[in-house]
Design a protein around this nucleic acid. Structure first.
Lengths: 163, 163
DNA sequence: TCCGTCATGTTATGAAGTTACACTTGGCTT
DNA sequence: AAGCCAAGTGTAACTTCATAACATGACGGA
């Protein structure tokens, strides 16, 4: 995780700055992997970054379609899947939704904090949890591949606002 | 967790025995809560117990319909939701599916091990993970309500069978 | 017995995700 | 330069998952 604080996603901050940096990072990372950040893919990532929250595939698709890209589901799903596979976005199981990864390359399987009042999400390190799970799993001979850790609750801002 | 071993769900065992016990427990628990284990609900729980794996709502619905219950989605979804709310079944986010709870009353938010070869699942204690998550979440002022922990991987039996 | 509540059933609809296939593009070979 | 192949983008059609809205039936308490 970066040093900008774990709950930074819930705090007010400069979207345009963090988006621009994330986008630049993404382009660089993909180039070094030989993967192409095509217009649809780039725009999909931008949309996720701009909104800074989890978005459904169809919500993303609507925006893509409005901007002249294809208007059929596979257009969005393919772009989103590409981003997820390259660690630039995450899929949130509880929400059937996707969100841009704010810390690409640092923690590929973070845990998520999902505020059910404002719909914003935060990524937190899941290392300790994954270690604990892998240990208990190993005890029964289960080899863990991928882990999903998603917490639903109330973020500090919403707790303050509405009691 | 019971003392029958964490990975018991992946090991060969007597389904009819554990099903019968789970069913008896369920009836008792519900009675003490004033909730009714009606025919649809009972049969839904039995179906989950018999199969001993995660099942989609429509798969459950097919069986219910074949046995004379309603054949529309809400029939299954309502029964499944009832079971989940009373701690007798779990919803698996990664699979859009449901599974009978094998340890009712003991651990209401277990972690799940999902074998992607045989589709069987196991429940393991999630206490340590939830504690770790709550701690890191508290650091950013996030109050955790519910946590989903689901691991996909390979169970011991499948690892042995297919290398 | 009347009434209210819970439970079950239906139709209809909405939301999420996939399959299959056609066309284009851009790099690589020869 | 021509031809080829793989990757990318687009479409139509469909499956799967889930809920809304409403009617009917069952049961217990006043």
């Amino acid at each position: 995780m970066t040093s900008d604080g774990i709950g930074a996603a819930f705090a007010p901050h400069d979207h345009s700055h963090c988006s621009a940096r994330a986008l630049a990072d993404a382009a660089e990372r993909l180039a070094s992997e030989g993967a192409r950040l095509t217009p649809v893919r780039r725009r999909t990532l931008e949309i996720l970054l701009e909104n800074h929250r989890a978005m459904g595939a169809y919500e993303v698709l609507d925006r893509l379609a409005a901007e002249g890209f294809g208007r059929q589901p596979p257009v969005a799903y393919r772009a989103l899947e590409f981003l997820v596979q390259h660690g630039l976005a995450h899929r949130l199981q509880r929400l059937n939704a996707f969100a841009a990864c704010l810390h690409p390359g640092e923690e590929h399987q973070p845990a998520f904090l999902i505020c059910d009042r404002c719909d914003r999400i935060a990524e937190v390190p899941s290392g300790p949890m994954r270690a604990a799970l892998a240990e208990v799993a190993a005890g029964s001979g289960f080899a863990v591949d991928r882990v999903t850790v998603e917490a639903v609750g109330t973020c500090a801002i919403c707790a303050e606002d509405r009691g």
